[in-house]
């Protein structure tokens, strides 16, 4: 049901029956290693290309989530997935393996929450009994497509971020026990004129702020309604800007509940500059770490605001500024 301008409230409160998070070797050394279902030692997953490795991770995340719910692939009516590769090949190819009716999504790194929001809408409207939402990214395949070869010796600035090798999936249903998706705020595309692909956090921060503001306005809520508000992959630079920008706009979120998936996922001593990024970042942190904490009872209400930079390698070479988007989904126990 529409609330305000851009927020859905899910009256039926779809349940996240199960979720899965898959990570790579760098993530296994990170701060949230315990929250992954599978951690791979080999960044190639024994495949002969990193693109295949990403697809494999996504498949594993989906199969694991379906398996944990005690279901079969046939029980899932719709599969929604997104990633960062051209023509979202990781998602489409994983959907080919799964054989579940599929809607491909692209919202750059916001695809994770875009998928969860649409899956919740499908289940809530009873268009499908069970829907699976997933997202993935792979450090090598994404760097290869968007930046330089991984072994190329370029000096990264302190604002650069490290693309997470990971895939996350969540299975939604109407009946069952578990954390519930209660609302979703769909973001507008916001472009504040930044064009540096090595500073995506600062480019995406206004989009996150716009969506967070819209969420509180539409639902007439205060930030203290939530135990945790997490942005997707703003990193330490973008997250600080977002916090300051929110304060400037009169929304005060207590620093202890306002965090960022890109900051949480790695340890301080890992050489990731400003933090993690990529579709996999918000997906594994939400579907792994946050949902585990909700299930343990440490958190009751969270808001995840996944941020995405909607640029292509071509657009920034042509000196276009970076349009950004953010989608917020609230999950409550």
């Amino acid at each position: 049901m529409l609330k305000g301008h851009q927020t859905w409230e899910c009256n039926e409160k779809p349940v996240i029956l199960s979720s899965a998070a898959i990570g790579g070797p760098f993530e296994s050394k990170g701060a949230l290693a315990d929250d992954f279902d599978i951690l791979h030692e080999d960044v190639w997953l024994g495949q002969d290309s990193c693109e295949k490795a990403e697809k494999k991770m996504l498949e594993q995340a989906c199969e694991k989530a379906i398996d944990k719910a005690g279901m079969k692939k046939e029980d899932v009516q719709f599969f929604l997935s997104g990633d960062l590769m051209d023509q979202i090949i990781s998602s489409s190819f994983a959907a080919r393996t799964l054989g579940v009716p599929f809607l491909g999504l692209f919202g750059a790194c916001s695809s994770s929450m875009e998928g969860l929001a649409v899956a919740a809408l499908i289940v809530n409207s009873k268009a499908g009994k069970n829907a699976l939402a997933a997202a993935s990214s792979h450090n090598i395949s994404v760097e290869k497509q968007f930046r330089y070869p991984t072994e190329y010796g370029s000096q990264k600035p302190p604002t650069a971020q490290w693309t997470v090798t990971g895939a996350g999936a969540a299975l939604l249903s109407l009946d069952g026990e578990g954390p519930r998706v209660t609302s979703a705020t769909i973001g507008r595309v916001v472009d504040m004129g930044l064009s540096d692909p090595y500073n995506m956090g600062a480019a995406m921060a206004p989009a996150a702020v716009d969506t967070i503001q819209a969420h509180f306005r539409d639902l007439n809520r205060d930030p203290d309604y939530y135990d945790l508000i997490a942005t997707g992959d703003l990193g330490s630079v973008g997250h600080k800007i977002a916090a300051d920008l929110l304060r400037k706009h009169g929304i005060e979120i207590a620093p202890e509940i306002f965090t960022d998936c890109g900051i949480l996922i790695y340890k301080k001593d890992q050489p990731v500059m400003a933090g993690g990024s990529g579709c996999g970042c918000s997906a594994v942190v939400t579907y792994g770490h946050f949902l585990n904490r909700i299930r343990k009872g440490e958190l009751r209400r969270i808001l995840v605001v996944a941020t995405g930079a909607l640029m292509s390698p071509l657009s920034y070479q042509q000196k276009e500024t970076i349009p950004c988007i953010a989608h917020a989904v609230s999950i409550e126990m």
């Binding site: 302190p158 504040m192 004129g193 930044l194 500073n199 630079v237 800007i241 300051d244 400037k248």
Partner: peptide, 27 residues
């Protein structure tokens, strides 16, 4: 960024650019 490019931006974008610049760690 060159002055020419900054001029193309709207006043709000220019303001944000300054806002962000103050908070971005320098190389």
């Amino acid at each position: 960024m060159s002055n020419k490019k900054i001029k193309k931006l709207t006043p709000t974008q220019q303001e944000y650019k300054r806002f962000a610049k103050e908070r971005v760690p320098k190389r």
